[in-house]
Design a protein around this nucleic acid. Sequence first.
DNA 1: ACTGGCGTGCGGCAAATTGCCGCATCTCCG
DNA 2: CGGAGATGCGGCAATTTGCCGCACGCCAGT
Lengths: 182, 182
Amino acid sequence: MSDCEDSRPCILIVDDDEVFCAVLGDAFRARGYQVVTAHTVDDGLREAQKLEPEYAVVDLRIGRESGLTLAERLRAMDENTRIVILTGYASIATAVEAIKLGAVHYLAKPADADEILASLHKDEGDPSIPLADTPLTVRRLEWEHLQKVLAECDNNISAAARKLRMHRRTLQRKLAKRPARD
Amino acid sequence: MSDCEDSRPCILIVDDDEVFCAVLGDAFRARGYQVVTAHTVDDGLREAQKLEPEYAVVDLRIGRESGLTLAERLRAMDENTRIVILTGYASIATAVEAIKLGAVHYLAKPADADEILASLHKDEGDPSIPLADTPLTVRRLEWEHLQKVLAECDNNISAAARKLRMHRRTLQRKLAKRPARD
DNA sequence: ACTGGCGTGCGGCAAATTGCCGCATCTCCG
DNA sequence: CGGAGATGCGGCAATTTGCCGCACGCCAGT
């Protein structure tokens, strides 16, 4: 594989969820980026070595490994890599850690491509990218989150409700209602 | 008032809750620190100028002002001041900000004196240690989202409410509540 | 086959949360 | 000074939760 000599900016995406990588990758490509994806810390490092991407989106939990260690090594390889940590298991402690390790931002999933790009570019010197002007509605955000957790629980509503620490009945009602509205 | 020539390390505590300051201050003194407290950003700066404390514990919301601006100025005065932000309204968005501004840590109240001291002394990133295993609660996710959008709107509540397409009153109420202790 | 454990719909009701109005400041700015 | 826009907050009706119960349907262990 060739490296990032391309004029297009290069982004490395590392997440163990392959579907997620694919979708996000396409979204970035559609916005004019060169994209590589990896699903393990080691692969991520390998790709980074080859391509020297200037941006990286890394999941906090890559399989059983920590995205933070990957972030640290990416920065060790190239101080200028702009990394954002993205995760469905966000916590303040890891956010603090991520920033200390040099990540430019830390986002909780769900986050859309524009949002991630905005974070990647935020505070970047020259081409100040305007950040998205239409953040997700709370309703929408909630819906995405519920769907995601539900999927993780193999569509077991009771289990999902427990994980989300919400009443099963409430989850049920939210799931039943949502398809209609935005 | 004399300055920190004392052999004991000097800590500045800034929080608009006077009772909290007093209690925390006593706890620190009992542990051999010299302590000064302040309840406004300006007072905090004044004390800092006089005493040049090597540590500072600052609340995120000092009355109507932001502890982050105070933190920023404290660091501008003395790069070596080790600051931890302490707050009952913790969010990832503000945590990220705080660390970027140079705080050494960011803690959610309630936090006991020992915990705070440990944070003040703790050094460079240990990338591996923490990792959550449960997804965020819907409530928590909402809180984080609100905080993020709010930050994007420079803390303009009305603007954030418009962006989120929710009633300003509702946003106000949600922000007034503390993030759930989940 | 029976039984206990677990998941799923759904009705109902009290309690909590929203949406929306109004009003009284404040601040910024021409 | 006057107006535009922010903010804090009380109040109220309309929804939405949280939580309980009940009636199944499945499946494994005895």
